[in-house]
Design a protein around this nucleic acid. Structure first.
Lengths: 199, 199
DNA sequence: TTTTAAATTGAACAATGTTCATTTAATGGA
DNA sequence: TCCATTAAATGAACATTGTTCAATTTAAAA
């Protein structure tokens, strides 16, 4: 039952998100506005509000795509590391370089708190999916640990990597450059693992 | 050379910041507006702009005060822990409960990126001051380590604690409750230290 | 009292998110 | 071919925002 549209709802949604991402890339969240997105895709604000509940909703969708991109990088085939520990270090490095190269997009994932009471499931799944990657290697590294222990370790490590990243990017770390961030996370992970695997 | 004012510049500044903090406490950053702050302190927007460069500047001052509060909690006299490791764990706990109890204020410290090219010194000092606390205990714990090693370890640990905190609060950790966050950081720190002190 | 100059105002501007009555146009039936 | 139906799309309207700055008020100095 297609109507007047040159584009389906899905197509408009896609166009809007791409336009939004471009604006975010150029000027961050403050460069984004409903009218600008609408104009960029050749529609009016009204149409945008038929597709997204509000701007927050649009941003949540942008963030989901950011998580998708990150996940893709994390699971992309790379020269396979010799052991699980190196695999984890490599994951961290992927995370850091993503945060560095796409910092504009990446920051928004943690800046933006939807007014919604509950983050929707389709979004949360993208979050937990990443932890699963970490858990996989931890499991291999410490087969004697329980599922809960692995789950917690994954969150501790990943939270740690993330924290170093975000402090660095927001200028709250007092160090500069990707290399320093890399060093810090490598130290965090290897020291943590030493403790984790020894009991 | 006092003029018309019932209040000095400093007094108005203080009043404005207190009013802003109240609004942030109630509705977060989105509850804050120049006009509202002005009205709350019995002045007009114009006056506010004589004292703060812009809203970003005002928020930066709020954040500085948040860091002050946190620092105070971190350095408040507590039952002295038996050893440095426990002192670090206690610091982390202080951090977490602060982030939990004053989450509204605390979040903004990392949400808000000033448009300024360079974060002012008076602000950065408040940031590094906190790392110094961590370094103090690390130094005692591993006297054979170099100053640089201590400095990096402090940033790795503190970044880690912070990351777990912020993922939890933004709902990106997939766990709930302060206790879980506490567990994760305790595990992060003790495992890290085990590795750190063993070489 | 008059002059001076700092302190304070608030109207004005451009831009924002969001809504919804109105208009446009594609489709199915006559 | 024309009409009625109904979804798609519009854009004016509203309240609110950050920010500026000419105009006004007022305290102190002369």
């Amino acid at each position: 039952m297609a109507r007047r549209s040159d584009h389906s709802r899905e197509e408009i949604k896609e166009m809007a998100l791409i336009a939004a991402e471009k604006m975010i890339l150029e000027k961050g969240l403050s460069g984004l506005s409903a009218r600008k997105v609408a104009q960029a895709i050749g529609y009016t604000v009204g149409t945008l509000y038929l597709i997204f509940k509000n701007l927050d909703d649009l941003i949540l969708h942008v963030n989901a795509r950011t998580l998708d991109r990150l996940y893709q990088k994390m699971t992309a085939d790379k020269p396979l590391p010799s052991d699980s520990q190196n695999a984890l270090l490599q994951l961290a490095q992927t995370y850091i370089s993503f945060a560095d190269e796409e910092s504009q997009r990446w920051k928004i994932v943690f800046e933006h708190h939807s007014e919604e009471e509950h983050t929707p499931n389709w979004y949360m799944e993208r979050v937990t999916r990443m932890f699963t990657q970490v858990e996989k290697h931890l499991q291999a590294l410490a087969p004697h640990k329980s599922a809960v222990e692995i789950k917690n370790a994954a969150r501790a490590i990943w939270g740690g990597v993330h924290g170093i990243c975000i402090l660095a990017i927001t200028g709250n770390l007092g160090v500069a450059g990707v290399e320093s961030v890399d060093d810090l996370t490598q130290s965090l992970i290897s020291n943590y693992l030493k403790g984790f695997t020894s009991n």
